[in-house]
């Protein structure tokens, strides 16, 4: 422990902070907060922002090959939304006293993590449907709860995001439902996508509670309001009937309904796969990071041009005023 925690005034501030959290108050950027609360939020929010940005890549892969103009427009709009979501959360993170440039640097150098799910490849058009249905569906379950987080800027960003994610999930499910009642080849294609995405999607809600070192602290501070396993249960309960409605099978032979609890119970999750992906060894980790680095590098001239333009006009204004 550092010296600060033994400082009596620090202890009083800490007690007051804990009391505010316990009373359900919202913490705002200028309020006093423990260093640990700040660093945990910076870590969690920046990972979330990075996930939105990296999440544009798997779907961006299919924009030029969308099967119709309607589907193409929807997909472009969805990918644009994800960029906006990244921006909301980066700005929210900046209120904690960290620069966005610093956060972007952490992503590009591989120091920061982002959601494991985006390290899987998008192999067919059906993946666009299943991602909207599963991945955005799981994100909604997570973000609806985060919309009540104790840190005001994070909660407000989540509220904006949740409104937009509903479109993402619904357009995805519409693609799935259309393929599921299409030709036998289309049905097989969407079932294949379901088979590939199901396990990574339930893993994306995070390690099981027994192996989630940050959960207890984040729940005590009301940053998280539900554990990873609770979120996973909620997601599965919502998704099983949706799969049944379009006559698709979820690839878990042990998935069963528990009459007593009223919840669906899943089979064994392959956590070795999850940790391998988190640690950088998923199917697309290197490709995703390289794509971000390239985009950042190729956008350099745009940033420089905008800056030069702004400076030129600033000079003109100053000389006019003089």
């Amino acid at each position: 422990m550092n010296q600060q925690t033994t400082d009596p005034s620090e202890e009083a501030l800490n007690a007051a902070f804990e009391a505010r959290i316990a009373a359900g108050e919202t913490i705002e950027p200028k309020d006093w907060m423990p260093d640990r609360y700040r660093t945990q939020l910076i870590r969690m929010m920046s990972q979330h922002a990075h996930s939105e940005i990296v999440g544009m890549l798997p779907e961006g892969n299919w924009i030029t090959r969308a099967p119709s103009l309607k589907r193409k427009m929807s997909l472009i709009a969805k990918v644009q939304d994800e960029a906006g979501h990244g921006l909301y959360i980066y700005c929210g993170t900046e209120t904690l006293g960290v620069d966005r440039a610093e956060l972007v640097d952490q992503l590009l150098t591989g120091k920061a993590k982002y959601s494991s799910i985006f390290n899987y490849p998008t192999l067919s058009w059906a993946d666009m449907g299943v991602i909207g249905w599963f991945v955005d569906g799981a994100a909604i379950v997570n973000q609806t709860v985060l919309a009540k987080a104790s840190y005001g800027p994070y909660a407000r960003a989540m509220i904006r995001i949740c409104k937009e994610e509903n479109f993402h999930k619904k357009q995805g499910y519409e693609i799935v439902a259309t393929l599921a009642r299409g030709t036998p080849e289309q049905k097989a294609m969407v079932q294949d996508a379901v088979n590939r995405w199901w396990w990574p999607s339930i893993m994306m809600l995070g390690p099981s509670d027994a192996n989630s070192p940050n959960t207890a602290e984040l729940i005590r501070w009301r940053v998280k309001r539900k554990t990873n396993d609770e979120l996973r249960e909620r997601f599965i309960d919502l998704t099983v009937p949706q799969a049944q409605a379009v006559d698709l099978t979820l690839p878990d032979p042990d998935l069963k309904y528990n009459e007593t609890t009223g919840h669906w119970e899943h089979g064994q999750i392959d956590w070795d796969e999850f940790w391998a992906v988190v640690k950088g060894n998923g199917p697309c980790n290197r490709e995703r990071l390289q794509a971000r680095r390239d985009a950042h590098e190729e956008g350099r001239w745009v940033r420089e041009a905008a800056e030069a333009y702004a400076e030129k006009h600033q000079r003109a204004e100053t000389s006019n005023a003089a």
Binding site: E28, P29, K30, C91, E94, T95, G97, D99, R100, A101, E102, V104, D105, L108, T109, P153, H296, E297, R300, R303, A306, E307
Partner: peptide
Amino acid sequence: MPKSTSERRPRTLPEENGASQWPLW
């Protein structure tokens, strides 16, 4: 969000990736 002057950190630009920080609005 606006910060009070005393809290605002000096602008630091990580030059290694060429990202300069445009002003916040």
